[in-house]
Amino acid sequence: MKIISNGNFTAWFRILLWAVGIVIAASSYFFFTGLVMFIGVVIGMLVLATGTYAERASLLHIKPFDNSYEKARRSYEAKDSDQSKP
């Protein structure tokens, strides 16, 4: 089972992140008190935000989890080393 496909999370994993984030935040709010509740709600919101971010990136055809920047960085290093030679 793949989690990342074409530079983004797969659809089932984005929905899973979204649902798990809501469950963590809601259960922390209803079952805990004080600092534990606050930490649980914050963690739930972070998981929910990650799923939402990936979903919006998918709608806009952006690849946030792609490693193409590494390929670009390597290509610039090769050009820089060629120019520095006398």
Rank of each mutant, 00 (worst) to 15 (best):
S5M: 05
S5P: 00
N6T: 06
G7I: 01
N8I: 10
F9R: 02
T10G: 07
T10Q: 06
F13S: 02
R14N: 05
I15W: 09
I15T: 13
I15S: 06
I15H: 04
L16D: 00
L16W: 10
L17H: 05
L17A: 03
W18Q: 03
W18L: 10
V20I: 15
V20F: 02
V20W: 06
I22S: 02
I22P: 01
V23Y: 12
V23H: 06
I24F: 10
I24G: 00
S27L: 14
S28A: 10
F30Y: 14
F31D: 05
L35P: 01
L35M: 14
M37D: 06
M37V: 05
M37C: 07
M37F: 09
F38K: 03
F38D: 07
F38T: 10
I39A: 11
G40L: 04
G40A: 06
V41L: 05
I43S: 05
G44N: 02
G44C: 00
M45Q: 05
L46H: 08
V47Q: 01
V47G: 03
L48H: 03
T50N: 10
T52I: 08
Y53C: 10
A54H: 02
A54L: 06
A57Q: 08
A57P: 04
S58F: 07
L59Q: 09
L59G: 08
L59Y: 12
K63L: 12
P64V: 07
P64D: 02
P64T: 09
F65H: 06
S68F: 11
Y69P: 00
Y69N: 09
K71M: 08
K71V: 07
R73S: 07
R74S: 11
R74L: 12
E77H: 09
A78F: 13
K79Y: 13
S81T: 14
S81P: 03
D82W: 15
D82M: 10
S84N: 14
S84V: 14
P86F: 05
